[in-house]
């Protein structure tokens, strides 16, 4: 199959480049997650930020980290992940509902 080798090698090259891009994205996500964690610990330890801002900052960073986790490390950004995404968001929804309900009962 000599005529196939050329297409094979372009496919290979394409795959290789894709893998490399993917790896880059993973590393960026990973590095930023570590950075977020360090920042979170840092601002709590140094007490440099007022509590009013501290809590929202940490919550936002947490949400972003969860996003990285789902979309990059658990590949929800890739095709064919509609069902996992539905289930994960279903779970998030059930959890929020429960927390919302409990919060409502306690503080309203």
């Amino acid at each position: 199959m000599p005529e196939n080798t050329s297409t094979n090698s372009t496919v290979k090259a394409y795959q290789k480049k894709k893998n490399k891009d993917e790896m880059k994205k993973q590393l960026i996500a990973f590095a930023s997650m570590i950075a977020f964690t360090l920042i979170a610990f840092g601002i709590v330890a140094t007490e440099s930020v007022d509590k009013m801002f501290l809590i929202p900052i940490i919550v936002i960073m947490a949400v972003v980290q969860v996003g990285f986790q789902f979309y990059y490390f658990m590949h929800m950004k890739d095709k064919g992940h509609a069902m996992p995404a539905t289930l994960i968001y279903g779970g998030v929804w059930a959890a929020l509902l429960t927390l919302g309900g409990l919060g409502l009962i306690t503080w309203w």
């Binding site: 509902l97 309900g101 409502l104 009962i105 309203w108």
Partner: peptide, 18 residues
């Protein structure tokens, strides 16, 4: 089904709103 659990606790004293 996830939004109704407190109907087992009506007499606990959650209050009229809940």
């Amino acid at each position: 089904g996830f939004m109704v659990w407190a109907h087992h606790m009506f007499t606990v004293g959650l209050g009229p709103v809940a």
